[in-house]
């Protein structure tokens, strides 16, 4: 049983990391698109960012340095990632449910990281782990873990309830959406219950992590806790294959689309990239496009469409 838990935990972590990376690479390798920014753009100079303005508001903007208000970007990112600013501003009823859900997930991620750090410390620096820094870490992950295990399932239940009762959302809900929320609710409730109800002699989080790192099959994980761990691990492995991997997608929708106002300068990198794209050979079939799979984009756009090419 213990081995099965270790194997599922390791495999799930590997699948999560790998599948997330594959998704990120998929997006990152997509061609540089034509500009499609959306204002406000937070890296604009503070006086313009305040009203959603851009460098186009300046005369002879092309002679001025590109805006680089890093503080503005950090602020926008922090409020969006940590507090779900857009949802808070534009969909408050959902935010009340989504915020605890996401905050719980952040806390759970932090718990995993803190437990692993503690386990590594316990194995490599036992004196330090036994002293106050170790104790602080242990207290910390207990707090983050418990908070996460309460907040996420409560948030998931709230979201599920709203999906089922709000006519707007019910309309837009697929069975898959219900499954996803139910999966979070069930997996983390079982995990929380397993943790709370574990016998007093059962291993704690740190002991289990040390057991995992040393592949100690002697660690006895109680049944409910084991079920919670397995379900949560499988859920983590499932996330990158769904829209819930928006923690990856969102990086690109914000940085590579909404906020991408990078100017094409003569002789610059963008110009070179575009020159390569213009050698692609489109196959669009409408006659006015004049694509045939042989002519390049450069040929297509420098050729006038034949008369009466439409329909």
């Amino acid at each position: 049983m213990t081995i099965a838990i270790y194997v599922v935990l390791c495999l799930s972590a590997a699948v999560f990391i790998l599948a997330t990376a594959v998704r990120a690479v998929w997006y990152a390798r997509a061609p540089l698109h034509l500009r499609w920014e959306l204002y406000p753009v937070p890296h604009e100079a503070a006086e313009r960012a305040a009203h959603g303005g851009s460098y186009f508001e300046q005369s002879a903007w092309w002679t001025r340095p590109a805006p680089a208000n890093h503080w503005g970007t950090v602020k926008a990112l922090a409020t969006e990632v940590l507090f779900l600013r857009a949802l808070r501003e534009f969909n408050r009823p959902l935010w009340w449910r989504s915020f605890p859900f996401h905050a719980g997930l952040y806390l759970l991620a932090a718990t995993v990281a803190l437990v692993l750090v503690s386990a590594v410390a316990a194995l490599s620096l036992p004196s330090l782990a036994a002293a106050w820094p170790g104790a602080v870490l242990r207290q910390l992950f207990r707090v983050t873990g418990v908070a996460g295990l309460i907040l996420t399932p409560v948030g998931a239940a709230g979201l599920l309830h709203r999906r089922l009762t709000d006519p707007d959302l019910r309309h837009a809900t697929t069975p898959g959406d219900l499954f996803n929320l139910a999966a979070f609710m069930i997996a983390l409730t079982v995990l929380g219950a397993g943790y709370a109800l574990r016998p007093s002699d059962a291993p704690g989080l740190l002991a289990m992590a040390v057991g995992l790192l040393t592949w100690d099959t002697g660690v006895r994980v109680p049944g409910l806790l084991a079920a919670g761990l397995l379900l949560s691990a499988l859920l983590a492995a499932y996330i990158p294959f769904t829209h819930m991997s928006h923690f990856v997608g969102k990086y690109f929708t914000y940085h590579a689309v909404r906020w991408d106002d990078a100017v094409n300068r003569r002789g610059g990198a963008i110009e070179k990239t575009m020159a390569a794209y213009l050698t692609y050979r489109p196959t669009w079939s409408a006659p006015h496009v004049t694509a045939d799979g042989v002519r390049t984009w450069a040929d297509v756009v420098t050729t006038m469409p034949p008369d009466k090419a439409k329909r």
Binding site: L87, F90, N91, L94, D177, H243, M244, H246, T253
Partner: peptide
């Protein structure tokens, strides 16, 4: 790939 169907 990423619509959460939240209807915001």
């Amino acid at each position: 790939e990423h619509c959460a169907r939240c209807q915001t």
